[in-house]
Design a protein around this nucleic acid. Structure first.
Lengths: 162, 162
DNA sequence: GGTTTTATGTCAATATTGCTGACATAATAT
DNA sequence: ATATTATGTCAGCAATATTGACATAAAACC
C-alpha cells in the first residue's frame, strides 16, 4: 500500500490527526462545562439556564428572537427555562419602546451575581489555557474554531471595533 | 479608572477575548455535533450512541470500564445506550480471554458503517478547518484545547509513537 | 381600515440523556 | 473462604430538547 494518503495530505491532515481533533473538541468542551453544571445543579438549574444567563448578560436588552437565534433551539424549549429565570428573579423582561411586542431581556442583580459566578470559572479556565499557550497559539485556536463552526455562526465574531 | 486590567494583562487576555473564547467553544461544538445528531435521529439514536460507537471504533476490544472512564458517565447511563446498540447489532461483546468477567467491545459491520458515516462528516469538517488555518494554527488549537481540558483528560492525548 | 405578519407565550405529548439507589451474578484476587 | 472487581439491570426522577397546535398583541402592509 505504501500510505497513499500521506502523499496527498500534509502531515497535520492525517486521519490520526483529524480523529485527535474530534477528541480534542469532545474532551475540552466536556471539561469546560462540567464545573458550571455542578454550580447550576445546586440551584436546580441546568446548562440551558447558564446559556440564557450568559447571553443575556453579554447582550443586555436583547430580544427573545435574538436569543433564540443564538441558541438555535425552539421557543418552546427556551420558554420553560426563561420563564423559570424570570419567575425566580434572575432576568427581567422590559417591553420594547420602539416595538411594544418585544420583551427585552435584562439580568437582575441576582442574575448578574450568578452570571459572574459561572462565567468567572470559565474565564479563568480560558485565561490559564491562553496564557500557557501564548498569543500565537490563541490566534491559531481562534482560526480553527471559526473554521469548525457553520458560516452562519461566524457572524457572531465579527469585530467592528477592533 | 484608566483600564487597570490592560496594564496587568497582555492584549490577548482582555475580558473581551476571554468571553470570545467561551463563545468560540460554544458555537464550534454546537455546530460540530449538529449534523451527526441529525443523522442519528433517523435511527432513533442520539449523541450518546454516537460517542459509544466512536470510541469503540477507535479502540476495538476495549472494556466497558475503559469506555466509562472516557465518557465519564455512570454505568447505568451507559447501559441503556450500550444495550440498545448490542440489541440492534451495531456492537458485539466478546468475553475476555485473560479475564472472563470482561465484555470486550467491538463494532459489527453495521456498526462500522454507521461509525464511518458519522465520523466522516466530522473529519471533513475538521480537515477543512485545519487546511484553512494551516499547520501553525492547528498546533495552537491543540495547545489551547489541551489547556482547557482537565489534566486527567490530557492523558488521552499522549503520543507514544509520534 | 382591514388583513397579514411578527414577536411572544403556552399547552400537550414525546424522546434522549443523565442521575441516584439498590440489587445481582460471575470471576478474579487475597 | 472471603473480598473485590467487572458488569448488568430495575426503578424512579430531572433536565433538555423536539413537534404540533393554538392564542394574543402589536406592527406592517395595501
Amino acid at each position: 500500500m505504501a500510505e497513499p494518503k500521506s502523499i496527498v495530505n500534509p502531515l497535520f491532515l492525517r486521519d490520526e490527526d483529524l480523529r485527535q481533533g474530534i477528541e480534542l473538541l469532545f474532551f475540552a468542551y466536556r471539561d469546560f462545562t462540567a464545573r458550571g453544571d455542578a454550580i447550576l445543579a445546586k440551584q436546580h438549574f441546568g446548562r440551558a439556564h447558564h446559556r440564557v444567563i450568559y447571553f443575556v448578560g453579554r447582550h443586555p436588552g436583547m430580544t427573545v428572537s435574538a436569543l433564540l437565534g443564538i441558541l438555535a433551539i425552539t421557543k418552546q424549549s427556551l420558554s420553560r427555562v426563561l420563564s423559570q429565570l424570570v419567575r425566580e428573579d434572575y432576568i427581567v423582561q422590559k417591553t420594547g419602546v420602539a416595538d411594544r411586542r418585544q420583551r427585552l431581556l435584562h439580568l437582575t442583580d441576582k442574575g448578574r451575581a450568578l452570571e459572574a459566578e459561572l462565567t468567572s470559572e470559565q474565564r479563568a479556565r480560558i485565561m490559564a489555557a491562553y496564557k500557557d499557550a501564548g498569543a500565537v497559539s490563541v490566534e491559531g485556536f481562534r482560526k480553527v474554531m471559526l473554521g469548525v463552526m457553520e458560516p452562519a455562526s461566524r457572524k457572531h465574531f465579527q469585530t467592528p471595533d477592533k
